[in-house]
Structure formats: C-alpha cells, structure tokens
Computed example of a mutant assay.
Amino acid sequence: MRNGSPKPSHSAVRRANGSGSEPVLAALDLGTNNCRLLIAVPAESGFRVIDAFSRIVRLGQGLQKHQNLSEDAMERTVQALKICARKMAKRNVTRSRIVATEACRRARNCDAFLDRVAAETDLEIEIISTHEEAELALAGCVPLFNPKIPNALVFDIGGGSTELVWHRREETGSARNGRGALDAISLPFGVVTLAERHGGDRFDRATYRRMVDESRAALDAFEARFGIGAAIRDGAVQMVGTSGTVTTLAGISMNLRRYDRDRVDGTYLDFDEMEDIAARLASVGFRERAAMPCIGAERADLVVAGCAILQGICERWPVGRLRVADRGLREGILFDLLDQEAAAE
C-alpha cells in the first residue's frame, strides 16, 4: 500500500481465520540499493531467524537524474521480490510488514511500480517516512547498546538517504525500542546518490574531501540543536553504525576472506582504522576494489561514497570508535510484529 498504516497481509488473514500454528513473522526492507528479507519465529531472546534473503537491486539507479525508476531497475527488483514472496509462502508466514524507503519516496512513477509489484508478486508495499525508518533502525540496534553509556548516536547510511538518530536513555520510553527518547535527521543523500554525483571509479583526494565535507556540513544543524559534541566530551555517547558501508569496513578490518555476519555484527571499529581503510579504498580503482574480499563488483563503485559519508559523521562527532550492527530496520519491524502478536493473544 502507499503511505499510512499497513493492512494485514494475506498470510496474516489466513492465520486469523483459524490457523493455530506457531507465528511466523516476515520483515522486508526495499531500499534504494538492496532488497532484504528476514523470516523469524518468536524465541526467548525475542525472535529466531529461520530464513533470509538479500540482493543488491539498485532500484534507485539513475533516479537522481531522471526522477523516475528505470525499467531495468524495476525488473531487477520485481525478480528479487518474487523470490521473497516464494520464501514467505514456503515458510507459511502469518504476519508480515513490507516497507520501501527513499527511492520509492522520491520516484514520480512509484505508484505504477507498486501496482506492478502487487500484480506480479501479491506483495503489498508500504512507503514509510524518514522518521519511521530511523525509529525502526534504532529499535533493531538497541540490543547492541552499552547500558553504562546513557546516550547513543545511531546512523544508517542507505542508498538514497542517510538516517541518524540521537537517543537519550534517561527519557521515558520502551526499554527495548527506546521510542519516546529520540530525535532523528534524514540526509537527502546516500551511497548511490553521492557516487552518481562524484563518480564511482577512482577518487582523487580533492574529490573525496569534497564528499566528506558535504556530509559533515549537513550535520551542523543537528549538532547545534542538541549539543551532541558536549556529551561526547563528557564520555556519555556511544555510536552504532548500521549499513553496508560499516559492515564492509569491519570485514576488511578483520581480514575476512568472505563476509561473515556472525563475526561482524556487534564488533567495534576505531575511527583511525576506518579512515585508513577509506583512504586506501579511495586511492585505487574500481577493479582493485572489486577484487577485495567483502566488497566485490556489486559494491565497488559505491563503497568510497559510503566511506565519505561515514568519515563526515565521525569527524562531526569524534566518539573515537563505533559498534558495528549488521541489523537495523528489518529487526525493528520484527520487534513490532512480536508486539502485535502479544497484543493479539
């Protein structure tokens, strides 16, 4: 569906009509660059993932120039969504939420695209606001917070936008999702839009610095409003990053021959090390980056733009290190679906 509250999926209706089996939950995040699905069942720790899918579809490719989703991008995305729909049917999903973010918020032909998705996959996609996107990303990352540090700066570098959340634990709100204790900002650029503006092959130092400065300057108003820097100087801020950029840099830092979510999720990265890796990636061309473990051809033209956004964030707020989260919006949706299951009992 379009903007607004999601209606129950067909599978949710089937459960309401008499299936007494264990709840099976699905969260699907259709972003500017990726299509990602998690299927889970309730567990003592919250939920247990039983199936997953992720594919780089580049739905927003060329969107900045043409303001429309291209035919090729829509076709790639529909094919990925068909796989998601088959997985959801195979797992007998009983409650789901399927959301789209920046590419669908901006595209003039988005309604036609969503109609096509519904016709070919039977999936109803909901376009969520930038604020809700940030809320859900925060909810998915809360389990990684250090309880001894009262404030958290959480960011998600996406394909078409970058969300940041400033969370203050001392305010009232759910212990699990932190809602009621946050402020958020959405920057109107991500790895795809920045790479398309500045090129995706080799970056000289001046070009890379311009990208960093653009990212950092976009944060000035948020800093002026909340005085995050003062809290950092008091040692009262932790930083959590959830994005392909951050997880890729973590994999490189750990010298992984291939990406391993279980090893990356929850690890830490020092700012100095991230800056060194970013400089190395920017100094080589597309082919060299594509040959590196944890990057590959699908990310090689985007990872430097992501590094520039990340460096801008780190320079604006020098916490010193960040916690890496291979989790976020989808996990936040799953927590919401768990709450809905509890309320329905």
Rank of each mutant, 00 (worst) to 15 (best):
S96E: 15
Q67N: 12
L114T: 00
A175S: 11
Y268C: 08
Q67R: 15
A221F: 04
S70F: 03
D265H: 15
R216T: 01
G244P: 01
G285Q: 08
L249G: 03
R225H: 10
P23F: 04
I232M: 05
G241D: 05
F155M: 03
Q64G: 14
T101H: 02
A85I: 08
E315F: 06
H131V: 13
R263H: 06
S96V: 00
V264K: 00
V319E: 08
R330F: 02
S70W: 06
L281K: 04
R106I: 09
V24W: 06
S19V: 11
L187A: 03
N177S: 12
M292Q: 14
F53S: 00
D156C: 01
L28C: 02
G235T: 03
F189L: 03
E126W: 09
R105T: 03
G199H: 05
R2Q: 11
D301Q: 13
A230L: 05
K65N: 10
T172D: 11
P6A: 15
R36D: 01
V57K: 05
T94G: 12
V246H: 08
A250C: 09
E135R: 15
F222C: 00
G20Y: 07
D234Q: 12
R209M: 09
I228D: 00
E273V: 04
L114W: 03
G158E: 09
A343I: 09
Q61Y: 12
V117I: 07
S70M: 06
T245Q: 07
E124S: 15
I185D: 03
R202M: 07
P42I: 04
M274Q: 12
D339W: 09
K90E: 13
A119Q: 14
I56Q: 00
D270S: 10
E275A: 13
I50E: 08
D201R: 08
R261D: 11
R257Q: 15
G296A: 10
E275D: 15
E102L: 01
S283G: 11
R105D: 08
S243P: 02
S96C: 10
R323D: 05
G227V: 05
P23L: 02
F53A: 04
T267V: 05
G296F: 12
G320A: 04
A184L: 02
F113C: 03
R176I: 14
F189P: 04
A80E: 00
E315T: 11
P318M: 02
I228G: 00
R327M: 09
R205L: 13
E170S: 08
I83S: 11
R14Y: 11
A137I: 14
N92P: 07
D183M: 08
G18Y: 06
S70T: 10
A224C: 02
F113I: 04
T32G: 02
H198M: 09
L63K: 03
M239L: 13
M292D: 01
F271D: 14
R257V: 12
D29I: 02
G46F: 02
R106T: 01
S45G: 10
T94V: 07
P6G: 15
S174N: 14
N92G: 12
R2P: 10
R14S: 09
R176D: 13
G4P: 01
A16C: 11
D204I: 10
E133A: 01
R106P: 02
E22D: 11
